[in-house]
Write a protein that binds this DNA or RNA. Structure first.
Lengths: 339, 339
DNA sequence: CCATGCTATGTGAGCGTTCACAGCAGTGTC
DNA sequence: GACACTGCTGTGAACGCTCACATAGCATGG
């Protein structure tokens, strides 16, 4: 800090240039890693930057470049297990790559709110947008909107020209059901998520496929809303009917509700009815009994979205789509049927 | 869209001015709600804006105003129940007020990472920063850093000159313990969160206070890490010793672990041991048995943080600190002790 | 009738950066 | 020795907005 009087305003490039004895443009070149700067000059500039505590003004930069080093996230249900962990992954990966993350949450998902939020993000001149909106409707809306920046959809790759990172949830669901089939179950119910969620639909498909492959009927399908409460109600119904020997719930919360309902109804798990969940939330291992479920790495999903985004941002290409693969975790809620 | 040739570039103020037949400055005045604009002119300008689909360039604006209409969030453990819901509230309230939200997550909390993230946010010229870092260490660090924008701390008001929105967690803990005392329990254990969390410390204090007020001893304190796993281990220990008739866990996840451990050990809940949780996550009602717990509105917390922030931003004052008040929710894990 | 004040509008500069271009050494080629 | 070419550096003009100031019009008042 030996260089002249302290400035009252934050230092700008010109100040750095003066201290380093070069022009502002050379400072800019150093900052942007341009090739044609001699090592000696570069060093001098870097020293001046450190000395003054200079930080480049983002607004000025993005005014001229029309980029902002910011990635926008368009999301819903951000407090849910999946989305919040995906956001975490996005955030970490983005910051590692030197990007800011700006979020726009949707309270309800309609074409209008989506357009509105997209506009909100575009106003900020985000360089790219990661969409964490797990409803199939979103795809249509996105396809009909032209956004001038790359779009990456979390959890829905390849659909109609939009790039994204898919989670093979069909596989996850098949894994769950095949496990039950292998144990000898023949009547396996499914409590799904809301059918207007991509994830819910994929898990239903997986359930159907696995049953079909085993020559079994996909007869008992109850639609839920992801909440423990509706899992509970579904569980009560299943306990009353006793038409199935196993239940595959589309997430762990609903499985928890089922467990609760079965317990309350005096139905033993897994002896009378086996239960499988989905997500493998950290708590699932401590349900009573510990839940057999399907593990899925949402943080990784977020990270992959950013990886894909960076690839598109840098190469301008479409970027190869990635896939997250789920795996079965067997605990204590599944066994061979007694009957 | 009847006005001349389509522009290849996005429209700027000058374009709007031309269409409206005024100067760019008048357009700016309309945009910023300046008083001295005639109604007729204002209307013409607004029509031109709509016609061209003009959107003000944020970068240019913030280059000159040195503000960005962005509120930064400094957070940790963003995927946990509390923080993720707080973030949700922040995000909603901020957008309602026309602000962007930019997040910087901390993977680990040290003075360096905090400074780093703060710098990251300041680089973006955020207008204010909401801190969602529930560690007491954060306060010291923040006090020793001078940031040029308002800082609001979620969950820790009044501490050392920093403004924030507090949650009366001491009260929440007292509510839980008083409930147990009223039922007749005399030996009440506490499974706390990590003691380097503000929340954990406050809940311990509340537990101690309530016990002291009832003339009871605060002897059994087990430190946990918020996870169901450590609740489980604590539960096993408590089941083995049988030194207490009630357990107050500092969050619902740990309570879940306790429930699991007690069940496994053949200890009945609530007959042999009563259990109270904290947070009232939506799942708590479906634990086996349904959990008595303390309700706390994290989304509201986030909202209040933004409210406080806006007040500080607009009035420049300190803003009155708000408080979120928790409430007890009695379910099935508590009853009078048998012995 | 001119000084004064108020309202509505326009003009030009400047915010801090990057981009396009110009310059100017030094090196190699014919 | 003229020419191109490469490597490094500097100059000036954008980018799109807001701010400070200037100006014009019109009423008010002595």
């Amino acid at each position: 800090m030996s260089t002249g009087p302290e400035l009252s305003r934050p230092p700008v490039m010109e100040d750095v240039a003066r201290v380093a004895g070069v022009s502002h443009q050379t400072v800019s070149r150093v900052l942007n890693d341009h090739p044609n700067v001699s090592a000696r000059t570069k060093e001098r500039v870097e020293k001046a930057i450190a000395e003054l505590g200079y930080r480049r003004n983002t607004a000025a930069r993005s005014l001229v470049t029309r980029r902002s080093q910011t990635i926008g996230v368009l999301g819903t249900e951000m407090a849910q297990y999946g989305p919040s962990n995906t956001l975490l992954g996005i955030q970490q990966a983005a910051r590692d790559a030197g990007y800011f993350v700006s979020i726009a949450g949707l309270r309800e998902v309609t074409p209008d709110t989506i357009k509105d939020a997209l506009g909100h993000l575009m106003d900020q001149a985000v360089d790219g947008i990661v969409v964490v909106v797990p409803h199939p409707g979103i795809m249509e809306v996105l396809q009909n909107i032209t956004v001038s920046v790359p779009l990456v959809v979390a959890g829905a790759a390849g659909d109609g020209g939009l790039s994204g990172v898919a989670v093979d949830q069909r596989l996850g669901a098949r894994l769950a059901v095949e496990h039950l089939v292998r144990l000898g179950h023949r009547r396996i119910a499914h409590i799904s998520g809301p059918v207007d969620w991509i994830d819910a639909a994929a898990r239903i498909d997986g359930w159907r496929e696995a049953l079909a492959a085993a020559g079994l009927e996909a007869s008992v399908l109850l639609e839920g809303d992801w909440s423990a409460g509706c899992g509970y109600r579904a569980g009560l119904a299943l306990a009353a009917e006793r038409a199935v020997t196993a239940v595959f719930a589309a997430n762990d919360q609903m499985a928890l509700g089922v467990l609760r309902a079965l317990h309350e109804s005096g139905v033993r798990v897994p002896e009378d009815i086996s239960v499988v969940g989905y997500d493998d939330q950290p708590e699932a291992a401590y349900f009573t009994p510990p839940l057999t479920t399907v593990n899925q790495d949402f943080v990784e999903l977020g990270r992959l979205c950013i990886e894909l985004m960076l690839e598109r941002l840098e190469t301008g290409g479409a970027g190869k789509a990635a896939v997250v693969t789920p795996g079965l975790v067997v605990r204590a809620t599944t066994s061979a049927p007694l009957g």
